[in-house]
Amino acid sequence: MSPELAASLIHFLGMMLLIASFWILTSSQIGACIRAYATHSFLLALITAVIAITNHVEHLLIPALLTLVLKTIVIPHVFFRIIRRLGIRKEVESYINIPFSLLLAVLLVFVSFYVTGNDKILKPVAFSEFIPLAVSTVFFGMLMMTTRKKAINQVLGLLLIENGLFLMAITMTFGMPLLVEMGIFFDVLVAVMIMGIFVFKIRDAFESIDADDMTVLKG
């Protein structure tokens, strides 16, 4: 792959990634949200693979493959099973409406470009344009966790944060050592399973999966 082609491919993928992040944040149906997350992870896997090939760091291909298998196929599949078995209403309920979250998201993108603009501290090993994208993905994840009512959306927010950190790790350092990277994948997978079980428990006890029904404990 020639450097110019690689650079424009990376530009393109980066843009798509940002669009996918917006898609997760603005979709009004849980199903669409999960599909957007799968797309986001798919793009992440592609970016990882491109970085691995252009910079000749072959060990990065393993995390890329794992991202493809786990985050693009397995985890979304688990989510779809959960929502089918829960039989919940499909709309995403939020404390703030979608146009306003879109506005906040745009602001957050600006903020992430601003805070990472000082490249004296952080000089990434690979394409530096991904640093603000990674930071904004983390921000989006947090926004999602704080504004969404359903427990399942909070889990998606957490996964989005994790995606952002993964992108951060591969662009700044070509990924953590393989042992650590595998451990993180394992943890994420187990976390999704356990949170999935808890979503069912919440449904059984509260007869809904709205996290704002959980107000027993105070003080």
């Binding site: 808890f198 428990k201 919440i202 509260f206 027993v216 404990l217």
Partner: peptide, 12 residues
């Protein structure tokens, strides 16, 4: 109810 709420908050 209260235990599930506590565990969920703890996890998240």
């Amino acid at each position: 109810k209260s235990s599930i709420e506590a565990a969920w908050k703890y996890l998240i």
